[in-house]
Nucleic acid binder design. Structure first.
Length: 584
RNA sequence: CGGGAUGUGGCUCAGUCUGGUAGAGCGCUGCGUUCGGGACGCAGAGACCGCGCGUUCAAAUCGCGCCAUCCCGACCA
C-alpha cells in the first residue's frame, strides 16, 4: 500500500477526549474515530489490525473443531423472556420496538439465539457435541463507556457456544476451548495469563478469564509467587485461606467483660473511630448494610479489610446486590450511616467474614447515633447466621493452593470461558434423546473473546513515547518502507523497486512515497507502530545499503541492497523471533 | 443515576470574570526556498462561538431551559 493513497489521518496533538494511552494512540495514529459516546469507526489502518486479530482467533477456533456461524444482532424479546433475562438483564440491554410495537433488543450476547437455533435441529445424542461461534458486533449500553475501545458500547466479540450430552462432554469442550484460547493469545503475541474468575451474571459454575497483562488494566489479579503452583485468580474470585486451624465458632472466654457503650460523636468511618478511641482497625468490626434482592443484609468484616461484593452475592445467592441507602440504614439501625453493628440488630440477615472467628473482643457500631460498643464477643453478643470467606485477598495473604505468597498484577480481560451447565437449555427446552430414549437437556458452555478490546490491550501493553508497538502478528502492515528521495530520482526509483520486490514476496508493506520531509515520515511511521521500518536514503544508496530499524528495540542494522531479499528475510525472522512468534 | 467539568474554523486551545468589529498554534490551498527525526518565507481559504428562549441599544461573554462530550463514583463480558 502506498501511504500517499492510504486513508490514515494521523494527528500531531493528543485528542482532548482520550484519557488512556491506547485511546490516545488509536485516534492519533488514524486507526479509529469516534462517532458518538462509546461507538467508533475503524479506519483502514485500525481495521487491518482488527481483522488480523479476528483471523487468528478464527483459525484457532476452527482448528479446535468449532464452526463459524453469523447470527443476527437484532433479537426478539420473546427469546429473552423465555430465560427470564428480559426482566433481569437491566438497562445494559438496549431495547426498542419495531413498527408493529413488538419488543426487540440489540444483542449483548447470544445464548438465547444460539440455544434457539440448536434446539430446533438437534434431537439426538448422535448429533452432539456441537460447537458454534461467531465474530460479530455486540452492543451493551454501558452506564459509562470510557477508554475508547477498552470499554465501548459497541464492540467486536468472538462468542462461541458448546452443546454436549453430559458433564464429561462439556468438560472436554471447555478444555478444548481453553487450549484454543491459549494458542490464539500466544499467536497474537501479547503477554497474557489465564486466571480463575467469577462467572458473573451470565451464570454457570466455573470459569476462567484471559488477561492481557498491563499496568493500566482495570482488573487486579492475584498470582502465586511459586511458579510451579500456577494459581492465579481475579481479585473478585481469589480465595482467602486463614492460616492454621480455624475454629468452627467464635471463641467465648468465660468472665469476659460485657459490651459497653462508648460515645463516638460524629465518628463514622473506621479511621475516625479508631483515631478517636485509640484503636487498631483490626480490633474494629465494620458492619455494612446491603440490600440483596430487596432484603436487608448485614455483612461484617474486620475494620482493616475490604468486603468483596462478589463473594457476598454468591454466598447469598442474590442477583441484585447494592449497598443500602441511608433511609434503609436508618430504619434498621435507628442511626445515621456509620453506627451499624451486629448486636441487637433485627430485621436483617447477618453474615460475617471467616476471619472474625479468630477475633477476641471487638468494637462495633451500637445501632445508635454517635455511639459504638466495646468488649463485643461476636459468639456471645450477636446472632450471626454464617461465617464465610467474604473479604478481598491482600498481598499479605497466602496462596490458597500452596500456602506461599501472592503477588498482585493488573490485567485487561480479553477472553472469558464459562461452563453454563443446563441453565439455558432447561429454560429454553433444548433437549435431545439419549441412547435409552430419555429426553435430556444439553450441557452448555460459552466462550468469549473481546476482539476489538485486544487491539486496545495490545497498545496498553506495548507502547513508547512515539506510539504503539504492535507485534508483527497483528500489525496493520509488517513493514513501513520509507523512501527519503526528495528530488533524488535514484533514491525514488530504488524505493519503488524495494516496494515492488517486497510486495511480490508477499510481505505486507506500507510504502511512504509522500513528498514529505524525513521527520514527518519517521514520526508517522513510529506513530503507526509497524514493527519493522526500512529506510532508504541517498547516503545508504550510495553505499548499496538500506537501513532496517526494529521499531520496538530501536535497533538499526544495514541490509545489503545487492542481497536484499535474503538479508531482509533473515532480519524479518529475527524480529518475529524477538516477539516470541513464528513468522508466517 | 449522584458529583465535577467542558462545548469557539478539521485538531489543540485563548477570549467569557468586567457585554462593544471573533483570535493563536497546528492542519489545509498557492508560490518560492528547504529535505535523515514533526522546516521557513509570502499570499490565501475556512466559524449559524452546541441548540433554544430571554435580558440589553448591543450577547461567544449575562440569565433560564435543553442537548452533547469528558472525568470521578455506583455498575460491568
Amino acid at each position: 500500500m502506498r501511504l500517499s493513497r492510504f486513508y490514515v489521518p494521523t494527528l500531531k496533538e493528543d485528542p482532548a477526549e482520550a484519557e488512556v494511552v491506547s485511546h490516545r494512540l488509536l485516534v492519533r495514529a488514524g486507526m479509529i474515530r469516534k462517532l458518538t459516546s462509546g461507538i467508533y469507526t475503524f479506519l483502514p489502518l485500525g481495521l487491518r489490525t482488527l481483522n488480523k486479530v479476528a483471523a487468528i482467533v478464527r483459525r484457532e477456533m476452527d482448528r479446535a473443531g468449532a464452526q463459524e456461524i453469523f447470527m443476527p444482532s437484532v433479537q426478539p424479546a420473546d427469546l429473552w423472556r423465555e430465560t427470564g433475562r428480559w426482566d433481569i438483564y437491566g438497562k445494559e440491554l438496549l431495547r426498542f420496538k419495531d413498527r408493529h410495537g413488538r419488543d426487540y433488543c440489540l444483542g449483548p450476547t447470544h445464548e438465547e439465539v444460539v440455544t434457539d437455533l440448536v434446539r430446533g435441529e438437534v434431537r439426538s445424542y448422535r448429533q452432539l457435541p456441537v460447537n458454534l461461534y461467531q465474530i460479530q458486533t455486540k452492543f451493551r449500553d454501558e452506564i459509562r463507556p470510557r477508554f475508547g475501545l477498552m470499554r465501548g458500547r459497541e464492540f467486536v466479540m468472538k462468542d462461541g457456544y458448546s452443546f454436549d450430552r453430559d458433564e464429561a462432554g462439556a468438560e472436554k469442550s471447555y478444555r478444548d476451548m481453553f487450549e484454543a484460547y491459549v494458542r490464539a493469545f500466544s499467536r497474537i503475541g501479547l503477554g497474557f495469563r489465564a486466571v480463575e474468575a467469577d462467572s458473573g451474571p451470565i451464570g454457570g459454575s466455573f470459569s476462567h478469564e484471559f488477561m492481557v497483562l498491563a499496568e493500566t488494566g482495570e482488573d487486579t489479579i492475584a498470582v502465586c509467587e511459586n511458579g510451579s503452583c500456577g494459581y492465579a485468580a481475579n481479585l473478585e474470585k481469589a480465595e482467602v485461606v486463614l492460616p492454621g486451624e480455624t475454629p468452627g465458632a467464635p471463641m467465648v472466654p468465660e468472665q469476659a467483660p460485657k459490651p459497653e457503650i462508648v460515645d463516638t460523636p460524629g465518628r463514622h468511618s473506621v479511621d475516625e473511630v479508631c483515631g478517636f478511641l485509640g484503636l487498631d482497625p483490626r480490633d474494629l468490626v465494620k458492619t455494612l448494610i446491603f440490600e440483596a434482592d430487596g432484603l436487608p443484609v448485614a455483612a461484617l468484616v474486620r475494620g482493616d479489610r475490604e468486603l468483596n461484593e462478589v463473594k457476598l452475592r454468591n454466598l447469598l445467592g442474590a442477583t441484585d446486590l447494592a449497598l443500602a441507602d441511608e433511609a434503609l440504614v436508618r430504619s434498621l439501625t435507628n442511626a445515621p450511616v456509620g453506627f451499624a453493628g451486629p448486636v441487637g440488630l433485627s430485621g436483617a440477615r447477618i453474615v460475617a467474614d471467616s476471619e472474625l472467628l479468630l477475633s477476641g473482643p471487638v468494637v462495633c457500631g451500637a445501632n445508635r447515633a454517635d455511639a459504638h460498643l466495646k468488649n463485643v464477643l461476636l459468639g456471645r453478643d450477636a446472632e450471626i447466621e454464617r461465617f464465610a470467606d467474604l473479604r478481598t485477598v491482600t498481598p499479605q495473604d497466602p496462596c490458597p493452593r500452596c500456602g506461599r505468597g501472592l503477588s498482585f498484577t493488573r490485567g485487561i480481560e480479553v477472553g472469558h470461558v464459562f461452563k453454563l451447565g443446563r441453565k439455558y437449555s432447561e429454560a429454553m427446552n433444548a433437549s435431545f434423546l439419549d441412547e435409552d430414549g430419555r429426553e435430556r437437556p444439553m450441557v452448555m458452555g460459552c466462550y468469549g473473546i473481546g476482539v476489538s478490546r485486544i487491539v486496545a490491550a495490545a497498545i496498553e501493553q506495548n507502547n513508547d513515547e512515539h506510539g504503539p508497538l504492535f507485534p508483527p502478528s497483528i500489525a496493520a502492515f509488517e513493514v513501513a518502507l520509507i523512501g527519503l528521495a526528495g528530488k533524488d530520482r535514484a533514491v525514488a526509483d530504488k524505493a519503488e523497486e524495494l516496494y515492488r520486490v517486497l510486495s511480490e514476496a508477499g510481505v505486507e508493506v506500507l510504502f511512504d512515497d509522500r513528498d514529505e520531509r524525513p521527520g514527518v515520515k519517521f514520526n508517522d511511521a513510529d506513530l503507526m507502530g509497524l514493527p519493522m521500518q526500512l529506510i532508504l536514503g541517498a547516503k545508504g544508496l550510495a553505499k548499496g545499503l538500506v537501513e532496517a530499524k526494529d521499531r520496538r528495540s530501536g535497533e538499526r542494522v544495514d541490509l545489503s541492497l545487492d542481497d536484499f531479499v535474503a538479508d531482509f528475510a533473515a532480519w524479518r525472522a529475527r524480529v518475529w523471533e524477538s516477539w516470541g512468534l513464528e513468522s508466517g
